[in-house]
Amino acid sequence: MQTQTEGSAEPADNGGLLQVVGGAIVDSLERPVRLLVARRTAPEAFAGMWEFPGGKVEAGEAPEDGLRRELREELGVGVVLGDEIPGPLVQGWPLSGAAAMRVWVAAVHDGAPAPLEDHDELRWVELDGDRIMDLPWIPADLPIVDALRRHLA
Protein backbone atom coordinates (compact mmCIF):
# COMPACT_ATOMS: atom_id res chain seq x y z
CA MET A 1 0.00 0.00 0.00
CA GLN A 2 1.34 3.41 -0.86
CA THR A 3 0.82 6.08 1.74
CA GLN A 4 2.74 8.72 -0.16
CA THR A 5 1.28 10.69 -3.00
CA GLU A 6 3.05 9.76 -6.21
CA GLY A 7 2.13 9.27 -9.80
CA SER A 8 -0.70 11.06 -11.55
CA ALA A 9 -3.69 9.75 -9.60
CA GLU A 10 -5.97 12.57 -8.63
CA PRO A 11 -7.71 12.52 -5.28
CA ALA A 12 -11.38 11.64 -5.45
CA ASP A 13 -13.88 14.20 -4.15
CA ASN A 14 -12.67 13.34 -0.71
CA GLY A 15 -12.15 16.59 1.09
CA GLY A 16 -8.94 17.10 -0.89
CA LEU A 17 -7.38 13.91 0.52
CA LEU A 18 -5.95 11.18 -1.66
CA GLN A 19 -8.12 8.11 -1.02
CA VAL A 20 -6.18 4.99 -0.11
CA VAL A 21 -7.71 1.59 0.67
CA GLY A 22 -6.40 -1.30 2.76
CA GLY A 23 -7.35 -4.90 3.34
CA ALA A 24 -7.40 -6.46 6.79
CA ILE A 25 -7.15 -9.98 5.34
CA VAL A 26 -8.27 -12.58 7.86
CA ASP A 27 -8.36 -16.36 7.68
CA SER A 28 -12.18 -16.42 7.95
CA LEU A 29 -14.88 -13.75 7.79
CA GLU A 30 -17.10 -15.84 10.08
CA ARG A 31 -14.54 -16.66 12.81
CA PRO A 32 -11.33 -14.73 12.22
CA VAL A 33 -8.33 -15.95 14.18
CA ARG A 34 -5.39 -14.72 12.09
CA LEU A 35 -4.52 -11.58 10.11
CA LEU A 36 -2.27 -11.47 7.05
CA VAL A 37 0.27 -8.66 7.40
CA ALA A 38 2.73 -7.37 4.82
CA ARG A 39 6.24 -5.97 5.36
CA ARG A 40 7.18 -2.97 3.21
CA THR A 41 10.32 -2.68 1.13
CA ALA A 42 9.96 1.02 0.26
CA PRO A 43 10.03 3.93 0.69
CA GLU A 44 13.11 3.84 2.90
CA ALA A 45 11.27 5.50 5.81
CA PHE A 46 8.83 2.54 5.95
CA ALA A 47 11.08 -0.32 4.78
CA GLY A 48 10.87 -3.24 7.22
CA MET A 49 7.62 -2.02 8.76
CA TRP A 50 4.32 -3.91 8.63
CA GLU A 51 1.07 -2.69 7.11
CA PHE A 52 -2.30 -3.57 5.65
CA PRO A 53 -1.86 -4.27 1.92
CA GLY A 54 -3.74 -2.02 -0.48
CA GLY A 55 -3.15 1.22 -2.35
CA LYS A 56 -4.56 4.27 -4.05
CA VAL A 57 -8.04 4.44 -5.51
CA GLU A 58 -7.93 5.44 -9.17
CA ALA A 59 -10.06 8.25 -10.59
CA GLY A 60 -13.63 7.07 -11.17
CA GLU A 61 -13.07 3.85 -9.21
CA ALA A 62 -15.20 2.84 -6.21
CA PRO A 63 -13.04 2.29 -3.10
CA GLU A 64 -14.12 -1.36 -2.83
CA ASP A 65 -13.16 -1.99 -6.46
CA GLY A 66 -9.84 -0.24 -5.90
CA LEU A 67 -9.12 -2.50 -2.95
CA ARG A 68 -9.92 -5.64 -4.93
CA ARG A 69 -7.66 -4.42 -7.78
CA GLU A 70 -4.81 -3.51 -5.43
CA LEU A 71 -4.90 -6.84 -3.60
CA ARG A 72 -4.84 -8.69 -6.93
CA GLU A 73 -1.84 -6.60 -8.06
CA GLU A 74 0.10 -6.70 -4.76
CA LEU A 75 -0.68 -10.20 -3.51
CA GLY A 76 -2.13 -12.09 -6.48
CA VAL A 77 -5.42 -12.83 -4.73
CA GLY A 78 -9.11 -12.25 -5.15
CA VAL A 79 -10.97 -11.36 -1.96
CA VAL A 80 -14.45 -11.24 -0.50
CA LEU A 81 -14.98 -8.04 1.48
CA GLY A 82 -16.57 -7.99 4.89
CA ASP A 83 -17.16 -5.03 7.20
CA GLU A 84 -15.40 -1.72 6.85
CA ILE A 85 -13.41 -0.69 9.92
CA PRO A 86 -14.71 2.85 10.39
CA GLY A 87 -12.09 5.52 10.92
CA PRO A 88 -12.34 8.88 12.65
CA LEU A 89 -12.75 10.74 9.33
CA VAL A 90 -15.40 10.41 6.66
CA GLN A 91 -12.48 9.38 4.41
CA GLY A 92 -11.33 6.72 6.90
CA TRP A 93 -8.06 6.74 8.80
CA PRO A 94 -5.60 9.66 8.45
CA LEU A 95 -2.29 8.65 6.91
CA SER A 96 -0.83 12.10 6.45
CA GLY A 97 -2.06 15.61 5.77
CA ALA A 98 -2.66 14.55 2.17
CA ALA A 99 -4.14 11.03 2.38
CA ALA A 100 -6.64 8.91 4.27
CA MET A 101 -7.28 5.17 4.16
CA ARG A 102 -10.50 3.18 4.30
CA VAL A 103 -9.99 -0.39 5.54
CA TRP A 104 -12.17 -3.44 5.00
CA VAL A 105 -11.97 -6.86 6.59
CA ALA A 106 -11.44 -9.34 3.75
CA ALA A 107 -10.90 -13.03 3.13
CA VAL A 108 -9.06 -14.67 0.24
CA HIS A 109 -11.34 -16.56 -2.14
CA ASP A 110 -9.00 -16.98 -5.12
CA GLY A 111 -5.25 -17.53 -5.24
CA ALA A 112 -2.49 -17.86 -2.66
CA PRO A 113 -1.08 -14.65 -1.17
CA ALA A 114 2.45 -13.85 -2.32
CA PRO A 115 4.45 -10.60 -1.99
CA LEU A 116 4.34 -9.47 -5.65
CA GLU A 117 4.79 -5.69 -5.21
CA ASP A 118 6.00 -3.37 -2.44
CA HIS A 119 6.54 -6.17 0.13
CA ASP A 120 9.27 -8.71 0.92
CA GLU A 121 7.34 -10.82 3.41
CA LEU A 122 3.80 -11.81 4.28
CA ARG A 123 2.96 -13.31 7.66
CA TRP A 124 -0.18 -14.67 9.33
CA VAL A 125 -0.38 -13.43 12.94
CA GLU A 126 -2.84 -14.30 15.70
CA LEU A 127 -5.40 -11.55 16.29
CA ASP A 128 -5.80 -12.20 20.01
CA GLY A 129 -2.15 -12.33 21.11
CA ASP A 130 0.30 -9.57 21.95
CA ARG A 131 2.57 -10.55 19.05
CA ILE A 132 0.48 -8.58 16.58
CA MET A 133 0.98 -5.39 18.59
CA ASP A 134 4.71 -6.07 18.96
CA LEU A 135 5.33 -5.89 15.21
CA PRO A 136 6.90 -2.64 13.97
CA TRP A 137 3.79 -1.24 12.25
CA ILE A 138 3.77 1.80 10.03
CA PRO A 139 2.65 4.40 12.60
CA ALA A 140 -0.55 5.35 10.74
CA ASP A 141 -1.66 1.67 10.64
CA LEU A 142 -1.20 0.97 14.36
CA PRO A 143 -4.51 2.53 15.52
CA ILE A 144 -6.28 0.57 12.78
CA VAL A 145 -4.86 -2.69 14.16
CA ASP A 146 -6.30 -1.81 17.56
CA ALA A 147 -9.68 -0.86 16.05
CA LEU A 148 -9.72 -4.09 14.01
CA ARG A 149 -9.14 -6.21 17.10
CA ARG A 150 -11.95 -4.43 18.96
CA HIS A 151 -14.26 -4.78 15.95
CA LEU A 152 -13.64 -8.51 15.61
CA ALA A 153 -13.84 -9.28 19.36
Rank of each mutant, 00 (worst) to 15 (best):
L135P: 02
R69V: 05
L17P: 05
A9G: 07
E70T: 05
L89V: 08
S96I: 02
A98D: 15
Q91A: 15
Q19W: 02
V37S: 00
A62L: 15
R123Y: 07
P53A: 15
V80G: 00
T41S: 08
A100Q: 07
T41R: 08
V90A: 15
D13T: 13
P63I: 03
M1W: 04
L17W: 04
R69M: 06
P53R: 03
E70W: 02
D13K: 13
V20L: 11
L29Q: 08
H119M: 09
E10R: 15
T3A: 08
A12M: 12
T5Y: 09
A114K: 14
L116M: 13
A140D: 12
I25M: 07
I25Q: 04
G97H: 10
A9P: 11
I138Y: 12
V79Q: 03
G60A: 13
V90L: 13
V80E: 15
H119V: 08
I132S: 01
L122Y: 11
T5C: 10
D128Y: 11
D120E: 06
E126I: 08
G82Q: 09
E6N: 13
R150T: 11
Q4Y: 12
H119Y: 15
A147S: 12
I132A: 00
R39C: 04
G92Y: 01
V20C: 03
I132F: 06
L18Q: 14
E58T: 10
R39Q: 10
Q2G: 14
M49N: 05
V80F: 02
R72E: 10
V33Y: 07
G97F: 06
A100D: 06
L95H: 01
D128L: 10
E44L: 07
L81D: 05
E44I: 03
E74K: 15
R39M: 04
W104I: 04
D27W: 13
P94K: 00
R131G: 10
E74W: 05
E64K: 14
I144P: 01
R39L: 02
A38Y: 07
D146H: 14
E51S: 14
R34S: 09
A140T: 09
D130W: 07
W124G: 00
G22L: 01
E74I: 03
A112I: 15
I85N: 05
A42S: 12
V20M: 05
F46P: 00
I144R: 06
R31Y: 10
V103Y: 01
L17F: 10
M49A: 03
R31D: 14
R123N: 03
M101G: 00
G87M: 03
L148H: 08
T41A: 01
R102F: 04
K56N: 12
D83M: 09
G111W: 09
W93F: 06
V79T: 09
D65Q: 14
G22E: 00
L127I: 11
V26L: 06
V105N: 02
V20D: 00
K56W: 07
V103D: 00
G97I: 02
A153L: 12
R150A: 11
G66H: 03
L35Q: 07
M101R: 14
S8K: 11
P139I: 00
R72F: 09
E117P: 00
D110T: 08
V105F: 03
L122E: 09
A38H: 04
A112Q: 15
M49K: 12
A24L: 08
L152P: 07
